[in-house]
Design a protein around this nucleic acid. Sequence first.
DNA 1: CTTGACTCTAACGTCGATGTGAGGCTTTAG
DNA 2: CTAAAGCCTCACATCGACGTTAGAGTCAAG
Lengths: 151, 151
Amino acid sequence: MRIGELSARTGASVRMLRYYEEQGLLTPVRTESGYRIYQESDVDRVARIRCMLSAALPSGVVGQALRFLLDGRAAIPDEPADRARLAETLQRELDLLTEKIESLRSSRDLLATIVADVRGDVVGPGHPGDPGGAVARRSVRKAGPAVGLAR
Amino acid sequence: MRIGELSARTGASVRMLRYYEEQGLLTPVRTESGYRIYQESDVDRVARIRCMLSAALPSGVVGQALRFLLDGRAAIPDEPADRARLAETLQRELDLLTEKIESLRSSRDLLATIVADVRGDVVGPGHPGDPGGAVARRSVRKAGPAVGLAR
DNA sequence: CTTGACTCTAACGTCGATGTGAGGCTTTAG
DNA sequence: CTAAAGCCTCACATCGACGTTAGAGTCAAG
């Protein structure tokens, strides 16, 4: 398919698709006249790119991951030393990501209790005279303290 | 505490702290002479801000979420109608956050399979200095297909 | 009082990701 | 064949999240 169709099917703008190619994340073939031709599998690929970029993963990591997805194990270097370094780099990103996820989960859970609480109050017998400090009652336990720091 | 101390304690640059204030994510009081004065709780607050921003959450979302995460329930309105609207707003933030977390998890899982695969090859028959990489060798099959698209 | 560390505002620079034309081919529908 | 639609390559513009610098005020210590 050509770029317009891929754009329509993925929701990514034409500009973005060309940008991803520029970054080595997509490698469409070209027609005689220069038109980009994409594979069916590129629909998935674009979804992954967007997902990983939205996770604020460094584009180098995204690139490596994508190369791996596309070329399978071919993208893994032969030299043990290179592999070790690569593994370490990826592991660091993995740890960071895991940490980030945990922290976000904690924020989300806290937010969820607040939402539940607001909803809970809505259904109750409204007390118009209740001053803004409705904080006193209710069972919102102190949310866990320090969350993991991001870099 | 003043901005320098908060910076030291959070790892965020002074510039970042001022920027977060500009975005309404922090609201320090000021001394007579204009110096920003932060609360102890702002240390946690900055940690959350950094985490959420590093996850590429739109600052609008971060702002909304933060107001309720850290100012707690102080801002909950009395009027049932107001509460209902608030609950709805928060629910949307909550959904966005949940979606984001799922997207991050998907990226992390993908990254994990790649790391495992790279390590699997690195680990020779007794490789010194290599922490237990008891990963079954090549077992990486096509990871799940389409993952959730980010906005 | 003077110095030096700290802070302030204001403004310009940067970088990644993306939008937006300009100008010019190519393909497709009529 | 011709016009519309799609695509191409620059290349400059924008936006968020900062970094950096400049010029000036504040404050504790010597």
